[in-house]
Design a protein around this nucleic acid. Sequence first.
DNA 1: GCGCATCTTTGACCTGGAACAAGATGCCGA
DNA 2: TCGGCATCTTGTTCCAGGTCAAAGATGCGC
Lengths: 271, 271
Amino acid sequence: MNTLPPERRQSQPDRRRRGRRASDQRLLTSKMPPASRHLGQLKAACSQCSLHELCLPAGVDMLDLARIDQLTQKRQRILRHQTLYKAGDPFHSVYAVRAGFFKTEGGIGDGRDQITGFQMAGELIGLDGISSGRHACSAVALEDSEVCIIPFNEMEALARAVPALQRSLHRLMSREMVQDRKLLALLGNGTAEERITAFLIDLSQRLSQRGYAASEFVLRMTREEIGRHLGLTLETVSRTLSRLQRQGAIRVQQRLVRIVDAEALAGRVPA
Amino acid sequence: MNTLPPERRQSQPDRRRRGRRASDQRLLTSKMPPASRHLGQLKAACSQCSLHELCLPAGVDMLDLARIDQLTQKRQRILRHQTLYKAGDPFHSVYAVRAGFFKTEGGIGDGRDQITGFQMAGELIGLDGISSGRHACSAVALEDSEVCIIPFNEMEALARAVPALQRSLHRLMSREMVQDRKLLALLGNGTAEERITAFLIDLSQRLSQRGYAASEFVLRMTREEIGRHLGLTLETVSRTLSRLQRQGAIRVQQRLVRIVDAEALAGRVPA
DNA sequence: GCGCATCTTTGACCTGGAACAAGATGCCGA
DNA sequence: TCGGCATCTTGTTCCAGGTCAAAGATGCGC
């Protein structure tokens, strides 16, 4: 089930970043993000969660929030490189990312297939399992993470009682479709540079929505994973990042990316 | 709203196909498909519609079917090349294709953007508008078509009362996500031949689900539209079709496609 | 029937990114 | 401190598919 034994090789993520520049403190790590300050207090519910206006309960009033709290009682910790579920697993629940970072990839997750997306705190994973009753992709943690387990039957039942939750769910599903299609257009028409640029801008926006700096962040995924997401080889990803740096749009240092000229960057992506 | 004035330039679709071979009779045209035999009797409801187990009411029992019938009272005829909605239009309803054929494309539908999909009878269009309250793409009829107009607010309300409808809706949305991701993988990794092949197989399957011959059908879209769907140029689409024909897998004659060697075809597409 | 418009096919050439290869870098455990 | 390993960078070569161009098909209106 897990890709790695529970040894702690990955239990000290990003130790290598010790002693970096101060701004690193603000970056998305499994130690420091605001969303996980109460990582210990597992009782913290939707109503307490700093993500609640990004996540499911968006637009739900206080009264109904209590009922959603009950829905999301169960939590699960996922260590880096562990899989939350695999393609083909029977579908029972969806998962809200509370903290950490995931990738979802087609196939069994053997590292060959397309990566359909990267999910961060406040995003819902697993909705694609509804249609067939089995998960259509595999979800793997890119860093130590925590999710809320949301039994889908219960969620549907509650959605019937709480229109705001119903609407919220529909909006989330719809948003996924829209995002997938943006990516589709990118893969269909975009050059390598446009893909990378759009990817960085998207990441930057999502991070800033969560209170992180928009202009500097740490990539949680390898070049190869970026490539498998964008339909490029890892070499092309690397080259393109180097080129963008040479042109002064960004500054790259391993996984650390700083967006130097957001204007220039945005100018490269169509529409 | 519509891209063409209500003149009847397109009111006699496929006249050119007069006098073709007999097998054409079985093909998907706006005149002959089983789904539209009662095209005149606009009162025909979900419960009467030959598509009802492909469409929304899948799995809904007779009692609740009556309530869904009310939901789908309104119909609309869309002539060829007319747009059902444009990207940016405010979102109020989703549409179930009763008869005909649509494409959905990003942007204003000016003919430059990615075509996100082709929809045939029994499929739902417009769900991507939920997230932002505005349609995210444009839907254009590729032949004279008819849709059920389903006010989404009413549909949500009914879904709260009828769990089977709720589930059906969720399944449909989920299915769209899964399909988008298949396409994504194709655009990310597939060669031109794999894309075209997968496209033909998909069309063939969907047509046969609707009672048409799986091995011979008429493409409702141009090479250019296929290309814009698959991230290829129209020249590459044409060349690839020619090559598949030369290799004996298919037989192409303008828009008419006959799948000669389904095995060989399926063997070309990965997984 | 003729001319026009749209769509399709095919050819010739060029290029962006894949594939292959060879270091470089940084992390980790011994 | 060193050596192993994963990851990343950079160079070189090659080809699938894009681009440009031109010529068939096909159907439509006149």
